[in-house]
Design a binder for these strands. Structure first.
Lengths: 205, 205
DNA sequence: GATGGATATTTTGTATACAATTTAAAATAA
DNA sequence: TTATTTTAAATTGTATACAAAATATCCATC
């Protein structure tokens, strides 16, 4: 768990640009100019190029511009997400470890009692635990990539606590705990569907 | 459908390296040295680096080496694939266009009558059509990426025609044509499961 | 005022040079 | 021999310079 003290410029550049996109400092549609970013960070263009390429692969940048995902894009992401997480929830009902289950419960509890930041982190972790429990690196990787795009959307939404979200998490947790696989899958899919609709509605405003 | 006459070096490098990996000229586990590849192609390291980074994102290269996927890796890929293609088959049964359906039938027919190369291409296209019919770019993108890894495996297997493969394709096609969504999904999942097992068995030899 | 084309500017793509790191090799001690 | 430290070689990471391409600017023409 020890982080390498890697001070590689391209890693730094990647994190820097990524954070600025996700935080909204770099607005959607903004064109990213290699030289400007390089100067801004006091490094050369080479590592900046690397990181931009990587972010392009991840879907946060398209044609040198910060992505500006449409409603349809979000629907597409959620269609895949529903598939993966529905499966994962089903899988968990049978195979999840006691340890992971306990962590899951903890996320639900924090969702009820924590500060805004804690709640947000716990809700994110709730889904991460479930997907992570599949022990399928391919699935986890796809999930991670989608998270960025989803976050880009949610950010605009996140201050408004969605009603019932925690209750839904609790129900999913219960279904998993009781090994009700199909129920867990159904609840997860419902949950994500509601989340999608909430995001889309808030976008219009 | 007109290809850009792009003579960008990094595109060329990408295709060159990718083809050499998929064809097997660059064996699994081989370390890719930027300078050697650059010299080999008569270009500088810069575009070679770009293409290696891209191939790393795609999963064909890991830590400067050609990937050497294990049985488990293939299982993980197929777990995701089954999920996506099962959904896609289900979706097709309701929403596929007549045009796509006709192309699907064509793939089945070629599977019975074509040359080895034609059959291989048709079988690949069969799955591409079904996934493509979802009109979900996110799903299509994930599918495409997995294809490379799958191909890497199948290549060692491909000369041995798997029995019943075409019949399975035909049955899936029929289920889609008759709008039997759940049946199409079930058949697709069975089909992929058999394919996976066939691959894994052949690997052992 | 709009349109089209030549010119200038910006930005990206590529090559090369050098620094930092990693990896391999050699030499020495146990 | 085996292990361990030192040294050398290979390889990657970064900076910089220049070429090619894309974009914007300006001016003439309609």
């Amino acid at each position: 768990m020890t982080k390498k003290p890697t001070q590689l410029a391209y890693v730094h550049a990647y994190e820097y640009i990524r954070d600025r996109i996700l935080s909204g400092e770099l607005e959607r549609g903004t064109k990213l100019v290699e030289e400007r970013l390089a100067e801004e960070m006091g490094i050369s263009r080479t590592p900046v190029r690397d990181s931009i390429r990587k972010l392009e692969q991840e879907g946060l940048i398209k044609q040198k511009c910060v992505v500006n995902p449409s409603d349809m894009d979000l629907r597409h992401v959620f269609q895949v997400r529903t598939l993966l997480e529905g499966f994962a929830a089903n899988y968990c009902a049978t195979y999840i470890t006691d340890e992971a289950l306990a962590k899951l419960k903890n996320c639900v509890d924090i969702g009820r009692t924590g500060t805004i930041e804690e709640v947000m982190a716990a809700n994110k972790e709730f889904h991460e635990i479930i997907v992570g429990a599949t022990n399928n690196p391919v699935m986890i990787d796809i999930f991670d990539r989608m998270q960025s795009i989803i976050y880009l959307f949610r950010k605009t939404v996140v201050l408004h606590k969605r009603p019932l979200l925690i209750e839904e998490h609790h129900d999913i947790y219960e279904a998993i705990r009781q090994h009700h696989a199909d129920e867990a899958e159904r609840l997860m899919k419902e949950h994500l569907q509601l989340d999608l609709e909430f995001c889309l509605n808030r976008m219009k405003g």
